[in-house]
Design a protein around this nucleic acid. Structure first.
Lengths: 242, 242
DNA sequence: GAATGTGAATACATTCACAGCA
DNA sequence: TGCTGTGAATGTATTCACATTC
């Protein structure tokens, strides 16, 4: 219900050969870009394959079968092959996949060849942990700013960054060219900061605040709630016992 | 493929009515074992409803419709009603749901009435952030230990806890009665620590390490990978642009 | 009258199984 | 021969729509 307005237009290209689009976008050129929509569940798993491929590259492995890559990623081989089929046909029948090549193809399909600049909002425990987390940089995300409202934290150094005052949020986001934001904030201010970040033109937001945030249409929001994860574990653990 | 052996026996009760007790609870009979299997997607959302209901309780709201609760949780009202139907019939037609009562019913269905004691393995930035994160305690999880291998950290105080040496992992897990573990570790040692925690009898593990961990059968593992989340955002952002 | 609870319908995801190609 | 790539089949999840109940 809530998202009724966000859905209708976005549903077109999944299986229909562009039949219904009377009001088709002007530049509906089917040229270079694989405009094909990848199913959400497949997108999530493609990141896992990427991770596994990176590890394999580090181990000097150059070629791998769907069976082995699936094993390394924790999925079934048929799921892996189906997922890869969404981004094209990049393996060799009878042989397998070339690790480096497949890595680049997946990265391209996910849009990781673009420049992603991440601002962290909130320099509390979690914000600081995220700022120092090596996993972002190593996977193509540059952290360009970290904000806090606490005067005691502003100006303080974290990793290679200096904490900016949240008062200058809009200015610093513009200066640094941030195009993603991570919200590591208390629930009480999360919606307000989310609004400001979105108003400043950031279209991709990852929130760690345990609250349902509202975002304008066209802004992408993902949520991670650590307590939720434990609750899901609790459900399964309880079933084992019972 | 990987999980072939874990599946077979667990598939039984999904659609069978199983003669569910005609015990319409006048007084809250928090039945210990709702043996009915709840679909995974519904379990994940039930935690969101719980969160929303807690917020509503804080605001003094006593009754709410499926429409409003769905809105507050960020799902459609039909999804919400279907989800709630898995745990029984706890609303009143023509009226809605009683906030406190529904809260308790969901908590019971998720197994949150049991005693969950969480050990955090790894006292780096993330581990410390988790140890100080209020959201766990407030939602029924008690953090009972935090471990690290670094002698400089061992004995150090974090929140109400003192960092234990990972050498004493097994002993401390047993002493504290921990039944859940959160792994906040570098990739290089994640599998090893996962093995030890599982061998010590912990059946529920939440890992933040960006690697595919193997766990023995009967152990439940959930994964949160923050870089993965950003990559998924990147995919959608790129589609908007393109 | 109003809103829940739920079968039926639809949409999405995974798995199967094998044709096709190196 | 061996392994990928993909339609077809099966299994889940979401949405619809309305009978049911207060």
């Amino acid at each position: 219900m809530r998202k009724k307005e966000a859905q209708p237009a976005s549903r077109q290209g999944i299986a229909l050969p562009a039949a219904p689009g009377a009001d088709a976008p002007l530049t509906e050129v089917v040229r270079d870009a694989p405009v094909k929509q990848i199913p959400p569940a497949a997108v999530a798993r493609l990141t896992l394959y990427l991770r596994a491929l990176n590890a394999l590259t580090g181990d000097g492995v150059e070629r791998i079968s769907s069976e082995a890559l699936a094993e390394a990623s924790g999925v079934s081989s048929s799921t892996l092959r189906k997922d890869l089929s969404y981004i094209g046909s990049h393996g060799t029948r009878g042989v397998g996949y070339e690790v480096g090549y497949l890595n680049r193809q997946i990265a391209a399909a996910l849009g990781l060849t673009l420049d992603w600049k991440v601002a962290i909002v909130g320099a509390g425990n979690l914000g600081r942990a995220l700022a120092r987390y090596g996993g972002f940089q190593s996977r193509g995300f540059e952290i360009v700013a970290i904000f806090d409202a606490d005067p005691l934290l502003v100006g303080h150094e974290i990793g290679f960054l200096r904490v900016s005052d949240v008062l200058s949020l809009e200015t610093v986001l513009a200066q640094t060219g941030a195009n993603m934001a991570v919200l590591a904030l208390p629930t009480s201010v999360a919606q307000e900061m989310c609004d400001r970040v979105a108003a400043a033109g950031v279209k991709s937001i990852l929130s760690f605040a345990p609250v349902n945030l509202q975002v304008p249409e066209g802004v992408n929001l993902r949520k991670v709630d650590m307590a939720t994860e434990l609750q899901i574990l609790a459900y399964h653990a309880q079933r084992l016992v019972n």
